[in-house]
Simulated assay, not measured.
Amino acid sequence: MIDFENAKFLKLRRVKDTDFEALLQPMFVEDEGIVSTYRTVRDGVVFTNRRIIAINVQGVTGKKKAITSLPYRKIQTYAIETSGVLDLDSELKVTFSGMGTMTFEFTANANVAEICQYISYCTL
């Protein structure tokens, strides 16, 4: 489970949806599919049509993984900070009911507006 006191995923970049598909597919419910996939060097975040899945790769070998399912229906608020002239990264802060706030920091080429539009679609 993610430690919401330090819940931060840094420098996420868009990758192929197949990067974590084999790991997550057995956990999907009927009609669930991947919308977009982001990863750091080791960790990852997968947006499905039902939830956000955070993957925290642990240990030296990376075989141990902590996977946290964050359903869209638990989202209370979200906020974005877009990139600027000197700060090229974007941030998405999502507050989940009963859990806390997670911060996702994306590289400059990530389309954070598209992510927010999808979260809005699922929550409104």
Score class of each variant (00 low, 15 high):
Phe4Trp: 04
Phe4Pro: 05
Glu5Ile: 12
Glu5Lys: 13
Asn6Cys: 02
Asn6Glu: 09
Lys11Asn: 15
Arg13Thr: 13
Arg13Val: 12
Arg14Met: 09
Thr18Asp: 12
Phe20Arg: 04
Glu21Lys: 09
Ala22Lys: 12
Ala22Tyr: 08
Leu23Glu: 14
Leu24His: 04
Gln25Ile: 07
Met27Arg: 10
Val29Arg: 05
Asp31His: 13
Ile34Thr: 09
Ile34Cys: 00
Val35Lys: 15
Thr37Pro: 05
Val41Ala: 04
Asp43Thr: 12
Gly44Ile: 04
Val45Arg: 00
Val45Ala: 03
Phe47Leu: 11
Thr48Asn: 01
Asn49Val: 08
Arg50Phe: 08
Arg50Ser: 11
Arg51Asn: 12
Ile55Phe: 01
Val57Lys: 03
Gly59Ala: 08
Val60Asn: 07
Gly62Gln: 12
Ala66Pro: 02
Ser69Val: 13
Ser69Thr: 13
Pro71Asn: 09
Pro71Ala: 01
Lys74Trp: 10
Ile75Gln: 04
Thr77Trp: 02
Ala79Trp: 02
Ala79Pro: 00
Glu81Gly: 12
Glu81Ser: 15
Asp89Ile: 11
Asp89Arg: 14
Glu91Tyr: 11
Glu91Gln: 11
Glu91Ser: 07
Val94Asn: 03
Thr95His: 03
Gly100Phe: 04
Thr101Lys: 02
Phe104Tyr: 12
Phe106Pro: 07
Phe106Glu: 09
Thr107Ser: 08
Asn109Ser: 15
Asn109Thr: 15
Val112Glu: 11
Val112Pro: 08
Val112Gly: 03
Glu114Leu: 11
Gln117Asp: 15
Tyr118Gly: 10
Tyr118Pro: 11
Thr123Cys: 06
